[in-house]
Write a protein that binds this DNA or RNA. Structure first.
Length: 225
DNA sequence: AACCAGGACGTGA
DNA sequence: TCACGTCATGGT
């Protein structure tokens, strides 16, 4: 029998999907897909194709993108990624070889460049150590610069693991701002089929919904009360 | 011209 | 544990 909560979680997904259509996350530089309905960047998306990443380089690109996008709008992350690509540094060994000065200069558009330069080198060292193996959540969380959301983003989008990603939008949308990260994560994971494709799409849809200004108006009203 | 983005970390209470 | 301050660029 289907619980009320499960119904609700699926229904929210269906509504978001109907409203925004498949999002085609995680965006990749070498992927020519576009999504004109999307806010912000319109490049790098691969709608209804959950087969990415196709190789280690794309996997690595998603991982460094996950660091760079922390509290940062995606178009700024794209600029940083393009700079790194120009330096041929979307490659673990080459990225580590960059001087801090060059690395910081390249990722500057994404903000917090002093911290993120360190974070990038930290996660890159782990990536090399893994030799293609999938990291555990705990392994990722040990890395300075990788918190709950980044760890889950890496697992879900780079490694296709069914780990639900919770962000600020997720809590706002469900009005769960007072709940802890792990609690919200479990709400989704315990009430949805453990399919990485579904988790990828669901999170991307929540972000798209959250970006719309309509929500922000509602948010401000509900918070003021 | 404020405000905020696809957070994480360090600190003091 | 928890509430804050900090980090930084660029778009709206």
């Amino acid at each position: 029998m289907m619980s009320e909560t499960k119904n609700r979680m699926i229904n929210i997904y269906k509504q978001l999907l109907k409203k925004h259509k498949p999002q085609g996350w995680w965006p990749l530089l070498n992927c020519k897909g576009t999504n004109p309905t999307k806010t912000g960047s319109i490049k790098g998306y691969h709608t209804k194709d959950y087969s990415y990443p196709h190789n280690e380089q794309e996997k690595f690109e998603i991982i460094i993108g996950a660091i760079l996008t922390q509290n940062t709008a995606w178009p700024n992350v794209e600029k940083a990624l393009l700079n790194l690509k120009k330096l041929k540094a979307i490659n673990p060994k080459k990225l580590l070889k960059l001087t801090d000065k060059k690395l910081k200069e390249a990722i500057k558009p994404a903000g917090y460049f002093n911290q993120k330069a360190n974070y990038l080198k930290n996660i890159t060292e782990l990536f090399i150590k893994l030799k293609g193996k999938t990291p555990t959540r705990e392994e990722l969380l040990k890395i300075k610069g990788v918190g709950n959301e980044t760890a889950d983003s890496i697992l879900l989008y780079a490694y296709k693991q069914p780990e639900f990603v919770v962000d600020a939008y997720t809590k706002r949308l469900l009005k769960l701002e007072d709940k802890k990260y792990e609690e919200v994560k479990e709400l989704f994971e315990k009430n949805l089929p453990k399919k990485y494709e579904l988790y990828q799409e669901y999170h991307a849809l929540i972000v798209e919904e959250g970006k719309r200004k309509v929500n922000k108006v509602i948010k401000k009203q509900t918070l003021k009360r």
